[in-house]
């Protein structure tokens, strides 16, 4: 699914990622943990193609395509989804029309016609119900004035709608209270189908108690310094991020 080889990334002339290697197979859930400022989020932004994140060396193969050569929207259409740590506000754009437009962009790239209004409403109702999102939220402007929990739920709703093959979650647990964390995680777990892969970037163990990873990596000084299974996450939680 995804293979990162010898990746160096710099942001504003500062090297953040140094010789990163990571392979994620279909259906696998990988978690990257690390202290603040270690560059975890840089991985997410680089994979999604954020401008100013310069790949200095190495390459990334996603579904047998050269990911780095592609524009951000092409990466999305190819099946890469990034759930933002801080979802962006779009004043004046209602959530419903935004959701419909991004869905139609994906349908178009698959050669399908734009979705019919009635069918869209049906899908939106069903998916919103799963996340306990009131329909009223869709007539508000995208993320504008949303609470932290609403923003994160809206991210999960979008990943559900776009049906991606790789989901990168950037600190999705930050700003969520226990109830919101639980319902968000449940919704994410429903998206686990054995084929879809996940890369979960987080600071804390608690998200990983709800979404169980197959592999856990500890990130420090721009690279993965230790890898293991789920138990590594518990150890980090007890002992902190000290390098062995």
């Amino acid at each position: 699914m995804l293979e990162i080889k010898n990746l160096d990334v710099s942001v504003e002339n500062k090297q953040i990622i140094k010789n990163l290697n990571l392979k994620i197979g279909p259906g696998e859930i990988h978690a990257i943990m690390g202290p603040n400022g270690s560059g975890k989020s840089t991985i997410a932004h680089t994979l999604a193609g954020k401008p100013n994140y310069l790949v200095e060396a190495g390459n990334v193969d996603f579904k047998n395509e050269d990911l780095i050569a592609k524009d951000p929207y092409e990466r999305s259409l190819l099946g890469l989804f990034l759930a933002f740590q801080y979802p962006i506000e779009l004043p004046g754009v209602t959530n419903a029309s935004y959701l419909k437009q991004i869905l139609n962009a994906h349908r178009k790239s698959r050669g399908e016609n734009p979705i019919d209004a009635g069918e869209f409403l049906k899908i939106l109702k069903e998916k919103s119900r799963n996340l306990n999102i009131p329909m009223e939220m869709h007539s508000r402007f995208v993320n504008a004035g949303f609470s932290g929990g609403e923003k994160k739920k809206n991210e999960v709703l979008q990943m559900d709608l776009l049906d991606p093959s790789l989901i990168i979650m950037d600190e999705t647990d930050s700003g969520l209270d226990v109830d919101a964390l639980k319902s968000t995680s449940e919704a994410v777990n429903k998206l686990r189908d054995g084929k879809r892969s996940f890369l979960i970037i987080t600071h804390y163990l608690r998200l990983l108690e709800y979404i169980e990873p197959d592999h856990v990596h500890v990130f420090g000084d721009g690279s993965i310094i230790e890898s293991g299974d789920k138990s590594l996450a518990s150890r980090i939680d007890n002992e902190g991020y000290k390098v062995k």
Partner: peptide, 25 residues
Amino acid sequence: QLFYCMQRGLDAEEAQSLIVNGFCK
């Protein structure tokens, strides 16, 4: 804003047009 919309599959012009139409709504 542009990056957010593009991450969801809109190309640069579609993203801009969405944001501008929101501004004029």
